[in-house]
Computed example of a mutant assay.
Amino acid sequence: MSAEEEKTMAIHQVMDRMAAVQHKSQAFVDRINRQESLTQNQIMLLFQLRLTGKLNITDISERFVITPGAASSMCDRLEEAALIERVRTKEDRRVVNIILTEQGERRILDLFDRFATAELDKIADTLSKIQILMDEIIE
C-alpha cells in the first residue's frame, strides 16, 4: 500500500471514529432526555449554567455557535418553563445574566436519577479519557 493510500485510510478511520463518538454522545443525551421535552441544546445550556453559575446571551451564542437571537429564543423557552431566569447586574443594568432557577437545578438532577453513582463515575471517567486525548490532539 502506498503512503497516499495509507493516509487516505487513516483519514477515513478518523472521520468514522469522530462520527461514531458524535453519534454516541447524542445517543447519551437522548437517553438522559428520554422523557423530557427539552432539546439537546437546552439540556446542554442547563448543564453549562450549572457548571458556570451564569452566562450572558453573548456567552451562550459563542458556546453553541448560534446567533444571539437564537440564544435568546432558547432562553425564552427555558424561562417559560421556569428553568432559568434573567438577572440584570447591579453594576450595569444593560448586562443581563442567565441563571438557573431552583426548578432548573432540580430538573438537571432528575435527568441523572436513573443512573447509579457507580455508573455515573464510569461515564465521567470515560469522558475524562476522551477529553485528555482530544486535548493532546488539539495542542
Rank of each mutant, 00 (worst) to 15 (best):
V87H: 10
E80Q: 13
R77W: 07
R93T: 11
N97A: 04
I84M: 03
R106A: 09
L100R: 02
R106P: 00
E102P: 05
A82E: 14
M74K: 02
I98N: 09
R106C: 02
R107N: 02
G104M: 03
S73E: 10
E91T: 02
E79S: 05
I84F: 06
I99F: 00
G104A: 01
I99G: 00
A81G: 08
L83M: 14
E80A: 14
E102T: 07
S73V: 13
D76F: 12
I84H: 05
R107M: 01
D110W: 05
E91M: 00
I108L: 10
L100C: 02
C75L: 01
I108A: 00
A82I: 12
K90S: 05
I108C: 01
R94T: 15
L78Q: 07
V95S: 04
D76V: 13
D110A: 07
E80N: 14
K90C: 05
E85H: 12
E91G: 05
D76P: 07
V96E: 15
T89L: 15
T101S: 06
E105H: 08
V87R: 15
E79F: 07
D76N: 13
L83R: 08
I99Y: 00
R106D: 06
T89Q: 15
E91P: 00
I84Q: 01
M74R: 04
R93F: 04
V87Q: 13
I108R: 00
I84W: 03
L109C: 00
D92R: 07
L100G: 03
V87A: 09
V95R: 12
D92F: 04
G104Y: 01
A82C: 09
E105F: 03
V87I: 12
I108M: 01
G104S: 01
R77V: 10
I99E: 02
V96W: 08
R107V: 03
V96T: 11
R86F: 11
I108Q: 00
E102H: 10
E91S: 01
E102C: 06
A81E: 15
A82P: 08
R93D: 07
T101A: 09
T89A: 14
E85K: 08
V95Q: 05
M74L: 14
I84A: 01
G104T: 01
V96I: 13
L100D: 04
T89V: 14
L78E: 03
E85M: 12
D92L: 04
K90N: 02
I98G: 10
L83E: 11
E105W: 02
I99L: 10
R94D: 15
L109T: 02
A81Y: 14
L109A: 00
D110L: 06
A81M: 11
K90Q: 04
T89K: 15
L78H: 06
R86D: 05
N97S: 05
